[in-house]
């Protein structure tokens, strides 16, 4: 194994995720705005927001503890480590250091755990409500995620994300199983990145708030880190979906040209997916919280169907 190459992969992938992820937040907003007949904010708006937040002073509640201060950093660190696990442009050689799918999921869970704690830290009822709802939803979505990834593990006989991508890449034909997986994964993305119909990232209305309520007490640089990490999470999940469904474009050749091509292809795929997400959000209505299990049931159903097809095929 080439350590240097791996190191390079790590740096490139992480940096890419870090830098590009805010773009898709803005993009989805823009798509939604167009769907509503508005022009929407600029694509760079999220970057501007982050920059602005970094410049602001940080306000802490007098009730809060070190949990509040550590959470944003833990969050961002966990996401940065997680971004090593999902190759977006360059597919490194097989390694057992990174790529374990369960570890990836649990890194996200680690971030969420602390985020929820921070929601409770200030003692505001909004934060508590957000944490409570977030943990409930993530508990319910967990079986689906696991089944989806189990079906991927079944299909590609591996538990490593890069190896799955490699397997998908080796499949020259369009895999029907991948489509079913993709639908479930799509729901997972919608849930995990707090989108309609599960959550509404735009409002600050306590009836609908989940994610936003949880980070309501965050401010300044901390808020920036939180926003950035949730953007990264969205991109990583999108990456998983894209590179399973349409893995073409991923390069295994570490040369500037092929990297540039892969980058371009990925951006294209991601933009399309972002548009789909935006349109989906525009078409859907925010569900009542206790209706959500119904949505999850659909995803679960699909995941199980996928698995049954795989098992009996």
């Amino acid at each position: 194994m080439n350590i240097a190459l791996l190191l390079a992969y790590g740096i490139i992938n992480t940096l890419f995720v870090l830098l590009v992820s805010p773009l898709f937040i803005s993009l989805i907003k823009k798509v939604k705005a167009y769907a509503q007949g508005r022009r929407g904010p600029s694509l760079l708006q999220t970057y501007r927001n982050l920059a602005k937040l970094l410049k602001k002073e940080t306000v802490y509640s007098q009730n809060s503890s070190w949990i509040m201060r550590a959470t944003p950093i833990i969050n961002l660190a966990a996401l940065l480590v997680a971004s090593l696990f999902v190759p977006l442009i360059y597919l490194p050689e097989p390694t057992d250091l990174v790529g374990n799918i369960i570890l990836f999921l649990y890194l996200l869970a680690l971030a969420k755990f602390f985020m929820a704690l921070a929601g409770l830290d200030a003692g505001s009822s909004f934060g508590g409500m957000g944490s409570s709802r977030e943990m409930a939803i993530s508990a319910l979505i967990e079986p689906i995620i696991m089944l989806v990834f189990a079906s991927l593990a079944f299909a590609y006989k591996t538990v490593s994300i890069p190896d799955m991508f490699r397997g998908a890449l080796a499949n020259n034909v369009f895999d029907p199983v991948a489509v079913l997986v993709a639908v479930s994964l799509f729901i997972v993305i919608v849930v995990e990145s707090s989108r309609v119909p599960v959550d509404n990232p735009e409002t600050h209305l306590e009836l609908t708030m989940i994610h936003e309520a949880m980070i309501l007490e965050q401010s300044g640089k901390n808020l920036a880190m939180m926003e950035l990490s949730s953007a990264m999470k969205q991109l990583l999940l999108m990456g998983v979906l894209l590179n399973i469904l349409v893995p073409w474009g991923l390069t295994t050749d570490f040369s500037p040209v092929s990297l540039a091509v892969a980058l371009a292809v990925f951006l294209l795929k991601a933009v399309i997916l972002a548009v789909v997400i935006g349109l989906f959000e525009s078409c859907a209505a925010k569900s009542r919280f206790f209706r959500l299990p119904g949505l999850f049931a659909i995803a679960l159903f699909l995941a199980v169907v996928t698995l049954i097809i795989e098992v009996f095929a």
């Binding site: 755990f113 704690l117 944490s131 943990m135 319910l140 967990e142 696991m146 189990a150 199980v304």
Partner: peptide, 19 residues
């Protein structure tokens, strides 16, 4: 697979409970 789904739920609920 059924057990897996339940196990995943367990694991996530445990996290919720300890939050």
């Amino acid at each position: 697979l059924l057990a897996l789904a339940v196990f995943a739920l367990t694991s996530a609920l445990a996290a919720a409970c300890f939050v």
